[in-house]
Design a protein around this nucleic acid. Structure first.
Lengths: 337, 337
DNA sequence: GTGAAAGCGCTAACAC
DNA sequence: GTGTTAGCGCTTTCAC
């Protein structure tokens, strides 16, 4: 055992300060006034004993856990990690603690386990990252005992939601590429949610609106290496002059794959990503992409939850964040146009 | 309010199943045997009521929270995020929940707040990521009521620790560069811990052992753009033929800065990073780097904590992880050698 | 302002 | 095996 002294309790503090337990509680929660003299004594005792209130006891007695649960399939990839960072920051500012519950995939047992883990902490609200099938499946099987908000790129139903309007941004991106003179734009997707993600919808809409051919979708995994493989494959197809990728990691892999296959970017092929990954502007060529404010997404999620804990927010309320297309070196008009 | 029904409690379940509360508890914890007949009834009641035990009440009654706290300055950068992922995975496998407490910097008040947040959850153990000054300062001000483990790249004292032996890997890297014919190797650091990080130590040792000049250290921030700025600055110095960076993001930025300044990699300048970031092998040229197994680091941290909760582990026990140098395209002998 | 008493949802100790 | 009784560390009445 590496432990040493025991953690002090509220009654240790009360005893040392010569006051009753509820008085210590009042000092801690500073809502009911306490005489200055006693307050000082209590504060001193807290300091001397290095007392820290037990969140468990507080939760049990007050029925308020000051906890928010995040349910997500991933914690470390760029978009996910930034969203979580935004949530944690906003939660901390509001004096809430965050727990994360990971759903590896959309298997029913896995989802159930994650939901149980999330709810056993008695969270006052739950944030689900519905960027993928696992998150999406979780959203569909959540108890309704507590406010929930979904954070995503595609529309869900019946649940308050903060959405990054990827569809509009993707449309703008594809339209821009077509206007440069590309005959069409190919599309590589990351693993999709239940239906179709906003990026794909926007891509198809823009192509159809312009009367451009709609090529078959190429599916990648979350691993950037799958982008490289796709690039190598596409390099031999002269009909491919512009590609939009589901995220920047895939796009960066694609860049490498195209180079391996002897194609120059942007002279032979234009490439665009999605997310504005911190490394995307440093690549050679720098990557055209869509900036998504993930940490703002997280912050809005927290704000939504906190307000729905007090107000009477209507179900299914939708907030939209507008991403921004960043034109950089990896896109250009096709040769000979 | 978006909430609907109330969460069922253990006595709701007991009543519905026609048994006493402790019997339900026994079924839940499956340590004391319960007759098959009653067990079935209890399980059915749990299912029907969608009952989930309250972690707070369990913690309070059993004095076991089944929680582990992570204290870290950052949650989203590659090394941190991967370490956290490794911790979460190992903790979940052992049926522990993880809370994260963020210390933005090493300011005393900030540290104190983070420590309080971490300990108020009554964690059974605390994992501190001491990759930087904030984590390092936290480690120095932790109560000793609970087992603690530090995860880092440089040696700390008096605390059980899992260390990635960066120093040895950095030494090997620098030695390799010198053997290629480089006169010396420059070094760009990320914000350092209390003393000096293992990478810097290894770098200096290798230079001194070879009798090579030890250039002034160049300091970067965590932002990859600072690597780009450094690259632009170094591009005009013909004495710079090899550079080792504190992490891959900085190295990737450096690559871009050198290119902006008209230097070719690896012909004019060799560049090496640290971490084996998923994008480092896709870059053009692919980046020579040091692979660190962050998720293993996290897993070992959890294992250490769990064992020190039962065994009598000696204080200050040290485990070492051996990183691996990956030689790729960004390093080569200097021109004319 | 302040203390006494009750109770949050569970587990532990003890009887049977 | 099973129920009864206490009690975990707090907050919340309710008197005074």
């Amino acid at each position: 055992m590496t432990t040493v002294k025991k953690q002090a309790t509220i009654s240790d503090v009360a005893e040392r300060a010569g006051v009753s337990v509820p008085t210590v509680s009042r000092v801690l929660n500073q809502v009911v006034p306490v005489s200055e003299k006693r307050r000082k004594r209590v504060l001193a005792a807290i300091e001397e004993l290095d007392y820290r209130p037990s969140a468990a006891a507080r939760t049990l007695a007050s029925r308020r856990s000051r906890m928010l649960s995040i349910v997500t399939s991933n914690t470390s990839r760029y978009g996910y990690a930034e969203t979580i960072r935004g949530i944690e920051l906003a939660a901390r500012a509001a004096d809430y603690t965050v727990t994360i519950s990971v759903v590896e995939n959309d298997d029913a047992a896995v989802v159930r386990r994650a939901v149980t883990a999330a709810f056993s902490q008695s969270p006052e609200g739950v944030i689900v990252l519905t960027f993928d099938p696992a998150g999406d499946a979780t959203l569909r099987s959540l108890p309704t005992t507590v406010p929930v908000v979904a954070l995503s790129g595609a529309r869900a139903e019946g649940v308050p939601q903060v959405l990054i309007d990827e569809a509009t941004a993707a449309e703008e991106l594809v339209r821009g590429l077509l206007e440069m003179g590309h005959r069409t734009v190919h599309h590589i997707t990351v693993p999709a949610v239940h239906g179709e993600d906003g990026r794909t919808t926007g891509w198809r809409n823009a192509l159809q609106a312009a009367g451009a051919p709609v090529p078959a979708i190429i599916e990648a995994t979350w691993d950037p290496q799958s982008g490289r493989a796709a690039g190598l494959a596409l390099a031999s197809d002269p009909g491919v002059t512009a590609v939009m990728c589901g995220n920047d990691e895939i796009a960066l892999g694609l860049l490498r794959g195209l180079a391996d296959g002897g194609r120059r970017v942007p002279q032979d092929v234009s490439v665009a990503g999605f997310d504005d990954h911190p490394l995307s502007s440093l690549w050679l060529p720098s990557l055209t992409t869509v900036r998504q404010d993930f940490s703002e997404l997280g912050a809005r999620g927290v704000a939504t939850l906190l307000s729905s804990m007090t107000d009477d927010t209507e179900d299914g309320a939708l907030q939209t964040l507008r991403p921004e297309v960043l034109w950089r070196e990896s896109t250009a008009p096709p040769l000979g146009s």
